[in-house]
Lab assay of single mutants.
Amino acid sequence: PAHPYDRLKTTSTDPVSDIDVTRREAYLSSEEFKEKFGMTKEAFYKLPKWKQNKFKMAVQLF
Rank of each mutant, 00 (worst) to 15 (best):
F33I: 02
D14N: 14
T11V: 05
L28G: 02
T40M: 03
S30I: 13
E42H: 09
K51Q: 13
Q60R: 09
R24N: 05
Y5W: 07
P15S: 03
A26D: 09
L8D: 04
V21S: 09
D6Y: 02
Q60G: 13
L47F: 04
P4N: 09
E42K: 09
E25N: 05
S17E: 13
T10G: 03
F55C: 15
K34M: 15
D6Q: 01
A26L: 07
S12M: 05
T10R: 02
Q52H: 00
F44E: 00
A26T: 10
F37H: 01
T10V: 13
M57G: 02
P4A: 10
L8T: 03
A58H: 12
F62M: 14
M39D: 00
W50L: 02
R24W: 15
P15C: 11
R7G: 07
Q52S: 01
K34N: 13
K46F: 09
A58Y: 11
K36M: 13
K46N: 12
H3R: 02
R24L: 13
L8S: 01
N53L: 12
K56T: 02
E35Q: 14
D6H: 01
Y27I: 04
L28A: 01
V16L: 08
S17V: 13
P48T: 02
F44R: 00
L8N: 05
K36L: 15
P4R: 06
S12I: 03
K51D: 10
Q60W: 11
F62R: 15
T10Y: 11
K49T: 11
T22Q: 11
D14H: 09
E42I: 10
T10K: 03
Y5H: 08
A58L: 14
L47K: 00
F33N: 00
Y45T: 07
W50G: 02
V21G: 09
K56P: 02
L61A: 09
K46E: 11
K36N: 02
D20Y: 01
G38R: 07
F37N: 00
D18Y: 07
T13D: 10
T40D: 14
A43D: 15
K9R: 09
D14K: 06
T11G: 10
M39W: 02
P4E: 07
K41I: 10
D18R: 08
A26E: 10
Q60P: 12
K41A: 08
Y5N: 07
D18S: 10
K9T: 12
M39K: 00
E35M: 08
T22K: 09
I19R: 03
P1F: 11
E35F: 10
Q52M: 00
K51Y: 10
L61Y: 08
F33Q: 01
A58S: 09
F37Q: 00
D6C: 09
F62I: 15
T22L: 10
E25W: 03
L28P: 04
E32Y: 02
L61H: 12
V59L: 15
Y45C: 10
R23L: 10
F37K: 00
E32A: 05
K9E: 08
L61Q: 05
P1I: 13
S17M: 14
K9Y: 03
R24A: 06
T13M: 11
T13P: 10
V59Y: 13
P4Y: 10
A43Y: 06
L28E: 02
E32K: 02
V21M: 07
K56C: 13
E35S: 10
W50V: 03
K56G: 01
A58N: 10
L61C: 14
K46R: 13
K46Q: 12
Q52A: 08
S17F: 14
K46P: 00
S12D: 10
V59K: 12
D18A: 09
M57L: 12
G38S: 04
H3I: 15
L28D: 03
P15F: 02
Q60E: 15
Y5F: 08
K51M: 15
K49F: 09
M39S: 01
T13F: 07
Q60A: 11
L28Y: 06
L8W: 05
Y45P: 00
K51N: 05
K49Q: 12
F33P: 01
K51A: 14
Y45N: 03
K41W: 07
F33V: 00
A26S: 14
L47A: 01
Q52D: 00
F62H: 15
P15H: 08
L8R: 00
S30C: 14
T22N: 10
V16Y: 06
F62G: 15
V21W: 09
E32Q: 07
L8A: 06
R23W: 05
R7H: 07
F44Y: 01
K46T: 10
F55H: 10
K54Q: 14
V21C: 12
S29V: 09
T13W: 07
M57I: 13
I19Q: 08
A43G: 05
E31P: 04
V16G: 03
Y45K: 04
D6T: 00
R23C: 14
A26Y: 12
G38A: 09
Y27H: 07
T13L: 13
K9D: 08
M57S: 07
A43C: 12
A58F: 10
L8V: 09
Y5D: 07
E42Q: 11
I19S: 03
D20Q: 03
G38W: 05
T10W: 04
L47C: 01
T13A: 11
D18F: 05
V16K: 03
A43L: 12
K54N: 11
E32F: 08
A43W: 04
K34V: 13
